[in-house]
Structure formats: C-alpha cells, structure tokens
C-alpha cells in the first residue's frame, strides 16, 4: 500500500505497471484517474463562468492518515495484492490530473470494487477542498449529496 499527496503530476501507466512488476500472482489491476473539468456552476451559461483553474487545499498530516485508513478498510473487505493512491494539491488547470487510484488483485471483481470504494470514501472522508477560479472570481466547490450517497451504499452491502 502506498499513499502520496503531492503537487507534482503522475504517470498513470508507470504506477499501474509498478503494482504487478516482479510478481506473478496479480491477475487484475483496476485504476481510476480524476481530471479537472472546465465546468460552469449550476445555472450559469456565460463563458466567463467556466473554470479557468482550481486550487486544492488540504489538511496536511490528516490527509495522509485519512487516505491510509480508507485503504486499510478496502484491504479488510477485499483480497488485494497492492494499492496505490495519489492525490495532487496546489493549483491545477482544466485537463490536469487530480487523483489516481489503482488496485491490484488476483481477479477483477475485487479490483473493480475496491477501486470504486476507495474513490467513494476519498470523496467524503479525505480532507481536501477545491476552490475554482473563473473570470467572475473564485468560489469554493460545494459538497454533493450524491457523493454521500455513493459512499453510503458501501455500508449496506459488499
């Protein structure tokens, strides 16, 4: 298990390759990459409302612990052979990579499920906050109820 919080970009292909390098028991690696969208706020239509950049703030110290706890929970639920989580902080532009999760397992079922679980929990439990920059000014992104719902479904069933 490896968790990183960093300003630097990452190479998803290299990270995926590293999860199975030198071993012959990995049958599946599922991965997710999150990117910055040039979104507009709900109800906004003008080009000036589009996101020009985004700054990721985090709670240094707690962030790493929270991500590690999420991975430990995933390891308790599924048979995992390796997990890699990278979350970027600082100022990012549309199209930039924000987050990477990859899970190695013997079979695809556990890898897919654990990858999605880690992303759902990261969205609601890891202390990151996004502030968007538009030509109209800056605004903090509101938490989405759909993210709480996505994380909540894991408590009902495996």
């Amino acid at each position: 298990m490896s968790v990183s919080v960093q300003e630097a970009d990452f190479d998803a292909g290299a990270e995926i390759g590293a999860l199975s390098a030198g071993r012959d028991d990995v049958g599946a690696v599922a991965s997710f990459v999150g990117l910055v969208r040039a979104d507009k706020a709900d109800g906004e239509t003008s080009a000036a409302a589009a996101v020009k950049a985004m700054t990721l703030e985090h709670y240094q110290g707690m962030t790493e612990k929270a991500l590690e706890e999420i991975v430990v929970q995933a390891q308790a639920r599924w048979e995992l052979l390796g997990v890699r989580v990278i979350h970027r902080v600082g100022r990012l532009l549309p199209g930039d990579r924000i987050v990477f999760v990859a899970v190695a397992s013997s079979h695809r079922g556990d890898a897919f499920a654990a990858c999605e679980f880690i992303m759902d929990y990261l969205k609601t439990r890891a202390p990151f906050w996004k502030k968007e920059e538009t030509l109209q000014g800056g605004r903090w992104v509101d938490a989405r109820e759909s993210d709480d719902a996505a994380a909540g479904r894991w408590s009902d069933s495996k």
Partner: peptide, 26 residues
C-alpha cells in the same frame, strides 16, 4: 487530533481541533 468526529466528542488540553466545511476532493 486528525480524526473526523462528532460535535459531542470530548476536547481536552493538548488536543488539535480542526473545523472545516464538507470535503470536496477527488
């Protein structure tokens, strides 16, 4: 002390207490 908790959690001298809006990472 870097663990998310409820508002009824005890606080004592020496603790690190953080207040923040709901998180929006990922």
């Amino acid at each position: 002390n870097q663990q998310m908790v409820g508002l009824d959690t005890p606080v004592k001298a020496g603790d690190e207490v953080a207040f923040f809006p709901p998180v929006t990472g990922g």
